[in-house]
Design a binder for these strands. Sequence first.
RNA 1: GCGAGAGUGGCGGAAUGGCAGACGCGCCGGACUUAGGAUCCGGUGCCUUCGGGCGUGAGGGUUCGACUCCCUUCUCUCGCACCA
Length: 848
Amino acid sequence: MSETSSASPTGQPHENGQPGGGPEVYDFGTIQAKWLPVWQRMDPFRADRLAGDDPVAEPDPRERRYLLDMFPYPSGDLHMGHGEAYAFGDLVARYWFQKGYNVLHPIGWDAFGLPAENAAIRRNAHPAEWTYANIDTQAESFKRYGVSFDWSRRLQTCDPAYYRWTQWLFLRFYERGLAYRKASLVNWCPKDQTVLANEQVIAGNCERCGSAVTKRELTQWYFKITDYAQRLLDDMTLLEGSWPERVLTMQRNWIGRSEGAYVDFRIEGRDQPVTVFTTRPDTLFGATFFVVAADAKLAAEICTPEQREAFDTYLEQVKRETEIERLAADRPKTGVFLGVHAINPVNGERIPVYAADYVLADYGTGAIMAVPAQDQRDWDFAKAYDLPIVRTVQPPADFDGEAYVGEGPGINSANAEVSLNGLDVAEAKSRIIAWLDKKGLGKGAITFRLRDWLISRQRFWGCPIPIVHCAACGEVPVADEQLPVELPDLRGSDLAPQGTSPLAAAGEWVNVECPKCGGPARRDSDTMDTFVDSSWYYLRYCSPHYTEGPFDPEAVRRWMPVRQYVGGVEHAILHLLYSRFFVKVLHDMGAVDFTEPFSALLNQGQVINEGAAMSKTLGNGVDLGEQLATYGVDAIRLTMVFAGPPEDDIDWADLSPAGSLRFVQRAWRLAGDVTSEPGVDVAAGDVALRKVTHRTIKTFTEHVEAFKFNVGIARLMELTSAIRKAIDSGCGPADPAVREAVEALAVMLSVVTPYTAEDMWERLGHEPTVALAGWPAYDEGLAAAESVTAVVQIAGKLRDKFDVSPDVSEDELRDLALASQKVQAALGGREIRKLIVRAPKLVNIVPG
RNA sequence: GCGAGAGUGGCGGAAUGGCAGACGCGCCGGACUUAGGAUCCGGUGCCUUCGGGCGUGAGGGUUCGACUCCCUUCUCUCGCACCA
């Protein structure tokens, strides 16, 4: 990046500039080059800065606050999205520093992952080379961007010193039965040649490369997140109000709790009954056929020889379909009769059993009772295969749809022992569940959409799974003292996708003695999903150099939970759900004493350009480095933060970094105009300006607290204009109120535009760093308005306004309003029917 | 289809139920200038017969008073999507 003044629209000398703080040329390149090394020397953003060598024995006395930015993936240099996210996070962190909190604001890298492996194959190199080179680039960019990180806590998930503990945590999960292997149909990305978690399949495509995902039967490692489904759901009440509602909604939908019942159906010719799950047990009398997922084992098992050929043909057809085709809306229902019948347990009816692809093998039990009258999918299937339809819920008279899913009294629903007729849906449900339970035919049940988390990946650049497979002993965990199981030195073509992990081909690495029996054994050759690495990094930050465990329990107790988490909404279910799961497991292990990792979450919007996400194909990318070179760090940070509410997307084409640069220049020049000395008695200053200053401190603080940064900055702009006026045509540059105002402005600006603020601070005669100068206090008396504008409406329309004291009485205000010439004119002698007085702001007169 | 959110000037956006459009961009005018893509000052919702009238996607409602609350409707964005 070339930060030369020739490339930048920097200001020229301000002719009327007053002496006081050096030349009147604002050049961001010079200012950045001046302060960056000073800050690096000072290292002002260390957590526990005021603590002794042992922060537990001699603690930093200040209240602790943990601000966490989602750590970056080192895919190249920082981009515009990083610029925005870290500007918001840094604003909050710097505000906390100024307020005097002991702030933990760490940084690290989510450094395992596929892109490094692909780059290594292309360059015939080791993934670590590409990864660490990018990390160094990003670290330098972060420093130049002026982010208030505690660099002493930097971590990389690909460091053996980190992933040692990822493996250690895996073993603890394993001991608790929360990490297990099973064979099942899994999502397979044919391009990346690896399996994917359900969470990584987006609308049937690979989250990373976009390829259509297919299915494969494989034995893979899972984390038993389903054990925690209910708690993950319940604990969201703790996050209500401090997490974005849409993230909570997405997680609720993802967990997908369903209340209903399991019901057993006898299948003719089969000993064991088949259980189905239904949310509508009240409609059981309307079950007129039975459907098994075509790709479930049960379908093949119960199919009669007569139907075998038709079934095999159908199954082949289903398997050929991609996820995309499966998911297409309004696709006609297909299926095949399996030649057998099931018995409806409530009425003894023989109902035909079909295999179909609209029933999913991995949801519920992979089989359903079909109630066409009350379910549109079953209705469609019944119509296509000419199956009977029996209504068991009475639709309203005006109902003219097909399947009726609404409320209504039960009909056609009775046997010798139980009747649901006339009951509403809720009553009917509990009545039939009680009956099923009594007869041993079923029971009330809750199911979840959430599946166990598949963590195996057939990739090299990830955390090895610390398990050895022995023919005699089976799965044998690697002993804790043997950790980390380090990656071997594979590079280039060794890493090319072959459908199995590249590690499987590394003979020396993979062939080991069984830790238990000493016989020949093989290491597990898969690596863990990188989301495992990122599920606990925020804990590691609390004690990044700890060697006795993944984290020092005392450090975690002191810092956690994260007071404010900042990051993109793209992690709404993946990372955030997994991290919540991890903390609950750690809580159950007694390792932490809280149950939620992130008390508050801010999802910043995306930076887009010309109405679309930046992409190479659209050619609309905006390069952060170029923007910084043209406008400077402060102008770009200000532009990001001033653009609008943080959670909204911002379109770079709509914004004006040049305008932001103008503003920081205006503010900066004020510091050069101040002629009074530091420490001057501000109480003697111009009261009018002091009022503006104190009101601005008050409102800016409130806006920062409320994350309304754009509005807060508007107030700083107003303050800047007021100071300019005071200097040029008011109390003049020597008035103490001017110093008070500019000093407050510099400190407030330091949370957004740190370089400009630092330089202003020096020009005002202070030592660095402004970042720790302390948040300005405001005087309530000065901040309070001494007069407010009262408005007079007639029938809701504005007719007059005048200034009144904030504590004017209702009677006084009414009299003032009625005395107004304009009001009397507008009233035109009409009688007053009603008079509303809301002192001190408003009088509304309703004429007769 | 289900769920969540949003519709305000030319643009980004402000407004505890009480002055709609703060602040900024852009634009117009002025000052200073050899010059202005610098800086400073002023103006800028629409219409107007200069009295005022009309304005927050559309239509209703509650209220003395609605951008704000309620109902209906349209549009857009996001998420989920054959979940039984």
